[in-house]
Structures are given as C-alpha cells and as structure tokens.
Amino acid sequence: MDYLVTIAVLIAIYTILATSYNLVIGYGGLSTVAHPIFFAIGAYTTGLLAVHVPFIPPLGNVVLGMAAAVVASVLLAGSALRVSGDYLLIASLGFQLGLLQLLKNLEFTGGPGGLSAIPSTIVGPMRGPIFLAICGAAALACVFAVRAIVNGPYGRAISAMRDEELAFTALGRNAMSMKIAIFAIGCGMAGGAGGLYAYYFQYLSPDQFDVLASAAILTMVVLGGMGTAFGPVVGAILLLAIPQAITFLQLPPSIMAPTQGIIFTVLVLLFLYLRPSGILGGKA
C-alpha cells in the first residue's frame, strides 16, 4: 500500500513538473533543459529551511522554495533571452550543470551524499494518503492554472509570439517580458514540486536533478503531447507506471537495469515516427 502511495505521490509531483515544462517549452517555445534544476532549487531551499529554520511553517517553506526558483529563473531568462532566444538552451544547460556542481560540493547542502533528515511534518499511519491528497491537489491546480494561462487572451498572445515574434512585438506586445513571465511561472511550479518532494521523501540527492531527469521530463511531455493541457499528465503516469509494471515481471537484475532505459528510448523513437504530436496531440 505504502509502495503504491509513493508511486502516486511521484506521479503527482512529476505531473507538476511535466505540466510546467510543457508551459515553458510546448506553449512558450522557450528551449530550456534546466527544468530539474528549478525542481532542485525548490527542493533544497525547502529542505534546508525545514532543517535549519524550524519556526517557519511547512507551507511557508514550500512557498519560499517556489520563490527561490522564480528568482533564479528570472535571473537566467532575463540575461539569456537578452542576447537571443537560442542562447537560452545553452545557458540553461550551463546553469543546470554549474548549479549541480555547487550542490555536490557545498557542505551545507550535504555535498554528493545529499541532504538528509528533513523533518517529516506529517506523522502517523495517514501520512501517505495526506501527502497524496496535497500533492494531487497541487498537481490538479497546476494543470488547470496552465490551461487558464494558455486559453483566452494570454494564450492567444503566446501563440502569436511563437508564430511571428517580430510582428507580435511590432503590434505593441512586449515579447521579452512575456517570455520571462512564462519561464518564471513554469519554473516556480517546478520549485513548488521540489518543496513537496523534499517533505515527502525527507532526503535529496543531487544526482536526481541531472540531465537524465531533464530527458525524463521531456519524454513525458513529448509522449503525452506537447502543447496540450492534459498530455503531460498522461506522459507522467505512463513513464512512472511502466517501470513499476516491469518490476512485477521479476526479471533478473542484469536484464532489469537496462530495460527501463531501452523502453524509454524505444517509446520516444516510436512516438517520433508514428505520432510526433503525442498521445493527446492532434494528428501531425
């Protein structure tokens, strides 16, 4: 039971990550790979505050984690987008790798061993279900917030910006500030997911926020359907459920270990060939 609850919590957290990444890359057209590092910024900020500053309530810590991710994202986008949109990809990769090194080498973040002993906050037999309810509600809130953003007048402006940025700007729209806003909202959500993750698992390791995590979140978005409101939800469920389902096959570890990677790769290749716009996307 605990096991299933943990999977469900993970699905909720990755739904937030994939949904917010979809806002940034699928709708906003902003090429970034650094989404996991904003997840990490939120997680470490929340975790460190929970460990060292006991008088802040847990919700306050999660909000501060989000705020830290928002500040970092504005600094990154504000500088990288000033040069040209394409530089965001390179800058985001550098930002992610650099910050990962910091997390691995700073003493107060726990170094390569990670940050442990984050207080539990919720105790007792209902811990799992309560966390699941909180994370599930947060995931739903994110999905519907993104849907509200990409529909209506703001969404219309986003698509126009993606289609023809020059004409969009020449109509009086401030494309730069819109991009920074989209990036900040997406990264803030990832930071919030990090806060929830820190409180539930009580342990953070820097390795879980590396480029492989970027690939996993991107795969969720592509599989589910980039630029669709519910595609990332489907992607997160599939990509977290499939590896768990495989473990029930009870294969020997020597086969098990590479199987997941192979299945992900095959899935991505299949989707790129057969259904490039994802499960929920329209026919391309």
Binding site: Y154, R156, S159, A160, R162, D163, E164, A167, L171, R173
Partner: peptide, 21 residues
C-alpha cells in the same frame, strides 16, 4: 501573419492596449 491562428485571433492581438498581456 500568425499562421497557426484564425483570422479573428490575428486581429485580436493588434490593439495598442491589448488587455491579455
């Protein structure tokens, strides 16, 4: 033109004081 958008949506992005930004 904004090629993934309808004619009306193309026009709606145009006002000087677009409220949806």
């Amino acid at each position: 033109l904004f090629r993934t958008m309808t004619v009306l949506d193309n026009l709606l992005v145009g006002p000087r004081d677009y409220p949806g930004e």
